[in-house]
């Protein structure tokens, strides 16, 4: 088992990457941050990530499409959706298409990390991911 969890974070809001990136690193995972969905998809084709975190409402490529692409590529990758436009329909669609979890914006960094921890758990990692105190 790899030492560190490999995470890809995709959100067209720069600040999300700027803030969550360091937080994830601090919690003991590797993270690659993307703002451009196309570039992120290219990267996903190159490397298999443990966890992919993506927004839904982005220009050009929709987060659901990203979800589908990731699931096509790998069954094992846990996809976490973060979105400001959460509705019952969207949530069910995402779950239907294989998302691991959905968290609505706004959220606190520690709530986010809790979800990452759940994902790590389900992948068999020991619970090392703790939010900075």
């Amino acid at each position: 088992m790899k030492e560190k969890l490999e995470i890809l974070l995709l959100d067209d809001e720069a600040i999300v990457g700027n803030r969550l990136g360091p937080a994830i690193k601090k919690a003991g995972c590797n993270v690659e941050v993307f703002e451009d969905p196309q570039k992120a998809l290219n990267r996903i084709n190159e490397k298999e990530f443990d966890v992919v975190v993506t927004d839904i409402m982005m220009a050009d490529v929709n987060g659901i499409q990203v979800l589908e692409e990731v699931r096509k590529k790998s069954d094992k990758t846990k996809v976490i959706i973060i979105t400001g436009y959460a509705t019952v329909a969207l949530a069910r669609e995402a779950m239907d298409k294989g998302a691991f979890d959905i968290i609505a914006k706004p959220f606190r960094p520690k709530d986010f990390l809790a979800v990452i921890a759940k994902a790590a758990d389900s992948l068999g990692y020991k619970r090392e991911i703790v939010a900075a105190a």
Binding site: A91, D101, I102, I103, A104, D111, V115
Partner: peptide
Amino acid sequence: KHKKFQPMTYSLR
């Protein structure tokens, strides 16, 4: 048992 009706962070909230 379908995926659609599994709880998620958002729905638990």
